[in-house]
Every structure is written in C-alpha cells, then in structure tokens.
C-alpha cells in the first residue's frame, strides 16, 4: 500500500433519529507523500469535521483511513486500530492551526522540541531536531526567543516546525494563512511545499484563502459533507 493518506467512504453523523446530521458523506481522498492538497469549501461544509476525523480527535461513523501505509481506522473492523489515539496524534500526525498556538511559556526551540520529548526522545536529541527544523524554516536565529517576541510569520513557521518535529507522514493544516497578508501567506505555502517535498509528508491545507488556492496542484472541494476532486492551477510562487 502507498504511503501518504487514503480515505475511503468516510462518513460522520452527529446525533440520532430525526435530529441526525450527516456532516461527512462517503468522503474519498488520497494524498501521496510529498504532496500538498487544498481542502476548500464554505462554512459548515464539513471541513473541520473531516480534519477532526483525520486528526483522530473524533471517531468517524463509517469508512476507512490509512496513514503512512497503515490502516488507522476501519469501521468494518471495529474502528480505531490503536487504543492510544494520543500517541497516534503525537507520532503520526502534525497539526498547524489557524493561529500558531505556540506554548507561551516555552521558547521557540522547546516549542518544537516538546513533541519529540513527549514521544520519549532525550532532551538533547529533541532540541537538536528542533534546531535542524528551525534552520530549514529560516527561524533558527530566533531559537531562544519567546513566542511573544516573534512576528506572525515567524510564529507560523515555528508552528510548521513543530508539526514536522516527529516526522509524521501527514500534516493537517487548518487555515494556516488566515491571519497573514498575501506575501506572508504565499511564503507559508511555499514553505509547506518545500517541507512536504523535503520530508515526504502529505499535507492537507484547509483554507478559504483565495490568495493561496491557485497554488495547489490538486484541490478537494467539500460541500454538504461530500468531496469533489479537481485539478488546481498549481501556480508557481515567486
């Protein structure tokens, strides 16, 4: 089986009976390692629900999800394959949020190094990995700074470094460019493309942002819980 992320027939229903809401209906997606795809759709279309299912935060009602070549969820075989979803999220899924949500009481290095530390790696090795990522993302010069001392763009780059810290096969980015201006937003997308390519990570970018949508080579449109795939413009970012 291919690495990356594969979703087959994923559905999520909230509630029961007359009040039940089908938030996701037979969603199918496939993202190869090193690929960055966009997930776009209006508010209430099911983007966040899909992200939460992929992020092992909520349990789908039906379907199958494969991550990095391993089945992580299969409703036909009892649901989640691992009881420790916390470890699954920590080791195999990277998260980038709309706001960077860096831990304010940790410096930049430790914000990134925290994930490997949580995974049981030694502090020195974790910090070394963090510095390597900060270097790659061109924020190594702020390694000892507190998050509050960084610009918005720098904070988002640190949050990307954090998402990559445990070398997950997939990163889920929830509107990562929303608070940024055009230049910074495009810079973030360029970085995501570089990182996806460099670390062979599949990245799903949930976005409303018209500025960055043309940069995706593949886009999943989601409406009323169903996805439609289409080719993107794949516009080069200068």
């Amino acid at each position: 089986m291919d690495k990356g992320i594969h979703i087959e027939g994923l559905s999520k229903r909230y509630g029961e009976g007359d009040t039940a809401v089908e938030a996701l209906k037979d969603v199918n997606m496939s993202i190869a390692p090193g690929e960055v795809v966009g997930l776009v759709g209006p508010s209430g279309s099911g983007k966040t629900t899909l992200l939460k299912c992929l992020g092992a935060v909520i349990e789908p009602t039906r379907g199958r999800m494969t991550l990095g070549g391993e089945v992580i969820y299969d409703s036909a075989q009892g649901g989640w394959k691992t009881p420790d979803l916390r470890a699954l999220r920590r080791d195999r899924i990277g998260f980038i949020f709309q706001a960077p949500y860096l831990i304010p009481f940790l410096d930049v290095t430790d914000n990134v190094a925290l994930l490997p530390m949580l995974a049981g790696r030694a502090n020195a090795a974790s910090r070394s990995r963090a510095l390597e990522l900060l270097q790659a993302l061109d924020v190594a010069h702020r390694a000892k700074a507190q998050p509050s001392e960084l610009s918005g763009g720098e904070q988002q780059r640190v949050s990307i470094a954090r998402a990559l810290a445990n070398q997950p096969p997939v990163i889920l980015a929830d509107e990562p460019t929303a608070p940024l201006d055009s230049a910074r937003a495009l810079a973030v997308v360029r970085i995501l493309n570089q990182m996806a390519s460099q670390y062979q990570t599949a990245i799903i970018v949930v976005t409303h942002d018209e500025k960055i949508i043309p940069t995706f080579k593949r886009i999943y449109h989601i409406r009323d819980g169903s996805t439609v795939e289409e080719a993107g413009e794949g516009r080069e970012i200068s």
Partner: peptide
C-alpha cells in the same frame, strides 16, 4: 485552556 487543548492534541498525556 487553548494551550492545554493544543498540548492534548499534540499528544501530551493527561497526567503530564
């Protein structure tokens, strides 16, 4: 609360 939610999401144990 938001930082705690992030910590939990990225895999921090409840006991931590």
């Amino acid at each position: 609360i938001r930082e705690i939610a992030v910590l939990k999401l990225i895999g921090t144990r409840n006991r931590t």
